[in-house]
Structures are given as structure tokens and as C-alpha cells.
Design a protein around this nucleic acid. Structure first.
Lengths: 217, 217, 217, 217
DNA sequence: GATGAATGAGGGTTCATTCAT
DNA sequence: TATGAATGAACCCTCATTCAT
């Protein structure tokens, strides 16, 4: 009974390892970063907390000091990475610029803040794991997608009023504007090996397609 | 009796041969159908072969008579479901109809043959599991995506020549034409709970957007 | 992903081990017997299913073919071992013999069917683990203790009517008759190392004490 | 300041010394009290030191300043709670009162000092955990049980000499006198939920049974 | 071919114990 | 002294895979 650890055995023979101990370093952040790597690379179900711990430079048990369980780690990972986006969306100023200009800025924003960062992987994780994590899908829908849809719809409405757009497709389906962004993310994870896709050029070409080439700026 | 096959003999390496019982190998089909259900519902890693077997009405061991292992089952599932599509693509006739008309037929085809069928789930599986199954991603890329891209590029080229399109976006990025289809599939798996998306209307609105409303038939 | 077992590695290099395969042999029984041993020796919480499996000559996973989990194994163990006792109790014939005679037969029965068998350990397990397993305590109370109490009360009642007993202590507290049996079981598990207790003599001395020495047959 | 004790020095082996803060080492007491609660409620193996610490209002590490490990805590807990009993036993005066009277006083003592106090739980812990803690079983046997047995044997001897008892059962098995006390403790932990047992009445009825009702006082 | 009982590696989670502060 | 974050061994349970029948 109670064989918790041989009492006579010295642990960690030498004071070697123990990499990161700069007190200021937030273990939680390290774990989240490592989890994102592992979940992205192997998927939620297949990722091993052992690997997350190793990558974060902590012991396996340490993860449980910060997260109730694997699923919670995943959910908090998504929330943590997305919350700046959520905040930015809520603070999004309504401009009076032409829609095409706004759209181009959105592309820049998307590339800089999402596509070129770890957030791209978070989005991909949501797309791939979301069906098994309704809570995450809902969070993403309510906090991100719904906002974006609303904003785009309003933009499209005004663009029509101003004559920048000649039909109401984007009002009825604002998702259309974001479609290339989603596809770019998916493509990059699936097919870049065989055919790399220049996401920014891809999305700009899309604007050319729907607004007409060079009509803007 | 019993015909106890010498114990040291390697069983047929499985996967290879096949094709005997005239009317379509009902067991194999049942397993594939069951596997699609389970993989779609739970993802590859989380799906249990036990459930696949139960759903298919066979014993667990039977699966291994037809497929080397879980991964092979998955790969053959994708191939089996996609091969008609592949064949259709290869036989796709090049028409001289206006691009918008062709695009509308593609939408109909997509809705009827993909979106309204189990193939939608196969596509979704490829999108979500592909990153962990390069073989599948590659197969899908080479046999489906590349063909579609080529076809669309050719269509776009001609459309430009005929003045139906005024810029080369679709030539440079034929993926743009398929983007809404992809997004529709993803949306349906993620967000339909909160906001159902009418895939066909969605894609038609897209054509309105890029070709101009009602300009075509 | 899916690293279920290296495909090329041959398992169980030699067809050695595989002890018990005499088809007729009930795995379930072997597991229950092994579980009783392990639970008795180490207590429920500390017993390792690994050891149960090893002792039963089966693989760890096999246990789960027969029992949902560790706790279920424990509960079914208790039920399985006690059910003959329960049946015997229900079929217990009411005799007209003097109470002392009946009590002596009960002692013989107790020694032969409980104390000299694995059931002694089951009773001990109930006494020690019961507080943490209300379901087991209740089962034992309802199916065994309550019956025994009822039977003894009836016996005591009649003994009073016949003048074999001169007070109603055993009617009010039939448990008194069984107390030495319980104490014998506890003692044997705790103190036999330092002072062995002859359970049968112990209980017979008890009858001498309450009925008077040698007054009965 | 900080007085950072040279890192290589072995901390006081813990357990030994102790005894300084005048008014009874409140921390140590708090830990022992908390430990008794937790061990009683969940058993040794299942109790968590985390909970003990929380209940005692100290940090987890603090426990280790007072006790080498979980097992030592348990053993010292038993010793601490029992030592007053041990002392009382050693000082037990030999009276010349009739045995029944003495027995009744023992019952009162048992009820007041054991059954109505936390010591009941300590006894129960010994009974349930003893088999896995030979050191505790032995301590309890030597310091408590053996003494009690000796005392009762002497009492019984004299009772026979005086004609208060007509047979030697209690001389040969003094444990018989304590049996109902043990059973009362066990019953209260197991079956009180379904059938509460009045321990004092139970033990008094026992005296009625073996000495004859009302013959005493 | 077909079955499904059996296997056992793998991984999530817990918790006694340590130690830097 | 006291703290509590960190550690990592241990253990329950799952499930892909095998194989005797």
C-alpha cells in the first residue's frame, strides 16, 4: 500500500536540467504555446499531453495546475488566442471609406494578425475540431463570426447605397467576403506541400474579381 | 473439415485483390458506409472500429479481412467515395457555353452530387483529417483539386477571351470559384446549429456577385 | 497520429506462456478469485488491476470484458461470493430445536461456510470498505444482516417462550448473537500474528457464557 | 537575513524532537485533527494530504515539517489519540467491586471516552486499516488490547472465585466482553444509515444476557 | 471466410513529495 | 518556519489489432 515513491531514492540526481526558472516566465503561456503546436500538428485527440509538457519545458502534472483537463486546455487555448481578435472586433470603427478600400484593409489585417501568426493555426483547429467541440464552435460563431458577418453586412449595405456594389449578394451572404480567407487557411494546411498558395495575392485577386480590377485606390 | 490454413502462411496482404462476389461485395460496402458514418461523426482518431463493425453488422475482426488497418480503411473510404467524382472529372466535356452558365451547372452538380450526399462528409473529412494524412491530401489534390483547377482555369481563360470576364483573377486563382462550396461544407458542419446556410442560394449569390446579377440566363 | 502498435513488430515472440486455455475455464471466475486476493491483501484503493490480471492469468484489458470498472468488479465480487449465503438464508428452515442447539449449528455453519473459506475475506472487505461503498453496505445489510437479525430474533422469542432464555436481550439486539463471529473475523485479520484466536472455540465459549456451560446437548 | 540553511544539510529527520511552543504545538494538533477527519471519511489510501492541509489551515508542505510522510502522519495520529487511553489503562486501579458493576463502569467509560469522541473513529481506522499497517496493529494490540484482555481476565478470574460467574469463558476468551463494543463501532459506521444502533443500550443488554437481568446493582 | 474474446501498449489524470522562496 | 508551485511515478481504462475456433 501507499508506495508513493521509494523513500530512500534521491530524485533528480544532479541539479542539471530545470531549464526555465526566470520566475517572471508565465508557465501558463508556455503551456498554451506548446499545446497549440501539438494540437495543430496532431489534432486534439492524437496530441499527447506528455509532448505538450515536454515542449513547454514543464512536467506533465504541471499542466493540471493551470488547466482542469485536456479539453479545457484546448478550449482555453482557443479563447486566449481569439480574445484579442474579439476585442478588436468590438472596437472596430465604422469608416466611411469605400468598401473596396475597407476590404483591402481587412485583408491586410487578416494577413498580418491571423495568417502570419499562430492564430491561423487556431482558426484551423476550430475548423477541424469544431464539430466535436460545440462549445468552441459556438464561442467562435458568437464572438467572431457573427460580429464579422454583421460588420460586413453593414458595409455592403452602404456600398450598395453608394453604388459601389450593384447587387445584394454580400448583404444576403456576408460570408462570401470571408470565403477566400477561410480557403486560404485550409489550403495552406492541406496542399502547400504540392502547390503553395500566396494567400494575400489570392485574396486581392478576389477583390479584383468582385469589385473590378484596379477600380479602387 | 475446418481447412485450417497452415499457421505460418501469411494471409493475403489484404487490400490488394478483391473483386469476386458478383454483386458488389456487400460486406465491404457495408463496412465502408459504416466507417464513413463513424469517421464523420467522431473524426478519425476518435472513431472506434468497434462501432464501425456494429454499424456494419459484422464482427470486429471482419474489418481486417477487407482492410489492413484503421488508416487503410480511412484511405480506401476516401478513394472509394471519390472515384466516381474523379471519373466524372476526367470525362468532363469541354463545352462552349458561357462561363456563367457552366458555373451554374457546376453548382447544380455540386449540390446534387456532393452537398446532398455522403460525399459532402467525405470532403469534410479530407479537409479536417487531411493534414494528418498526407497520402489522402495528395490523392485529393492530384485527382480532384488539380483537375478542377485546370478545368476552371481553362474556362476562365476562354471567358476572358470572349469578354465574359474582365480580369484574370480566376485564371490566376481558379480556387476562387470553388471557395464558396468549400465554405458551405465547413459552415454546415460547424454553424448550422446556430445559423443554417442555404448552400445553393449561397453559391448562386456568389455568381451574381462575380458575374453580375441576372446577366446570365 | 494513430500509432496503435508498430505494424512490423511481431507480438509475443514465442508461443510460450498463455497458461490457461482449457476453453471450459471461466475467465470471469479467475478474475473474481484474483480480485478477492488482491483486494483482501491491499484494500480496494491500493489494489492494482494489473496485479489482479497477472494473478488471474489474463491481460489487463480482459478484466474490462467482464467488468465495467474496478468498482464494479469489487461490487460483483461481493455479490457473487455472498449470493449463496443469501440463498441459504432465504431457504433457512425454522426448526423447533432448542436455541442453544440451533446456535451451535449456526457456529458450525459459520465456521465451515464462512470462516474457513474465502467468504471470510469478503466479509472483512465489507467491514473495511463498506463505509466507502454504500451500495455494498446496503446490499449486505438488506440481504444478509437483516435476514440474520430477523431469524435470530424469532429464535430468541421462542427461546424465551420456552424458558430457554430468561431475558429479552437477544430479542431486542439479535446482533449480540453474531458479535463473536464478527470479532473473530476482525481479530484474525489484525492480531493473529501476535495471538492466534481459535474462532470456533471462541464462539462456543460464548454460548457457554450466555446459555450456561454444558446445559445444552 | 533569510538564514538560508546550507542547502546540503539534511533537514531534521522530522518526527523526532518536537515540543517547544508552550501551548501545545497548535499546528501539529490542527494537522492531526484534520487528518483524523479525512482518514475517517475516506480511508487512508483515498484521503488526500491536500485536503488535510486545507482543513488544518496550513500549506501542504507544512505537513512535512511535522511528519515524515503520509504513513507516519497516520501512525502518529493513532498513537496520539490512543496514548491517553494507554495511560489510563496502565493506571487502571484494581477494584473489588462485583464484575457486573465493573463491567457497567467499563461501558460508561467506553461510551464516554471512546464512542462519543473522535476516538471511535480512531478505533475504526485501526480495524479497517490495521491489516495494511502491521505497526499500528501491533501497537494497538500491545498497548491496548493486551492490557484490556489481561485486566478482564483477572476480573473474570475473581468473578468466578466469588461465584459471580459460573463458567470460565471470559477467562479463556476475555475478548468476549469487548465484542459488543467492537460490533457497535463497526455497525455505526456501516449500517446506521438504515438501522441506527443504540450502542449503550446494546452493551447493557449484553450484560443482562451474560450476567442475568437486574441481578447486578 | 467470419467471429469476438483476448491482448497490451498508450495516455489522461492524480497525488505524495520536494524545494526554491 | 511556512508556503505552494512543480514534479513524475503510478494506475485506471481504451481500443486497434490478433488469432483460435
Amino acid at each position: 500500500m501507499a508506495k508513493p515513491r521509494p523513500k530512500t531514492v534521491k530524485r533528480r540526481a544532479a541539479g542539471a536540467k530545470r531549464k526555465r526558472t526566470s520566475q517572471g516566465e508565465p508557465r501558463r503561456e508556455a503551456i498554451l504555446a506548446a499545446a497549440l503546436e501539438e494540437f495543430s500538428a496532431r489534432g486534439f485527440a492524437t496530441a499527447r499531453l506528455d509532448d505538450v509538457a515536454r515542449r513547454a519545458g514543464v512536467a506533465k502534472g504541471t499542466i493540471y495546475l493551470y488547466f482542469r483537463d485536456k479539453e479545457t486546455l484546448f478550449q482555453e487555448l482557443v479563447r486566449a488566442e481569439l480574445s484579442p481578435v474579439v476585442k478588436a472586433l468590438e472596437a472596430a470603427p465604422m469608416t466611411d471609406l469605400p468598401m473596396r478600400v475597407v476590404a483591402e484593409r481587412l485583408i491586410e489585417l487578416f494577413v498580418r494578425e491571423i495568417f502570419a501568426t499562430r492564430r491561423k493555426d487556431v482558426i484551423r483547429l476550430i475548423l477541424t475540431e469544431g464539430p466535436r467541440f460545440p462549445a468552441i464552435a459556438e464561442f467562435y460563431y458568437r464572438e467572431v463570426v457573427a460580429h464579422v458577418v454583421t460588420v460586413i453586412r453593414r458595409l455592403a449595405q452602404r456600398a450598395i447605397e453608394r453604388g459601389e456594389l450593384t447587387n445584394d449578394s454580400l448583404v444576403r451572404f456576408p460570408q462570401l467576403l470571408g470565403a477566400p480567407g477561410i480557403v486560404a487557411i485550409i489550403w495552406s494546411g492541406l496542399f502547400d506541400r504540392w502547390a503553395k498558395l500566396d494567400a494575400e495575392a489570392f485574396m486581392r485577386a478576389y477583390l479584383d474579381l468582385i469589385f473590378g480590377k484596379g477600380r479602387a485606390p
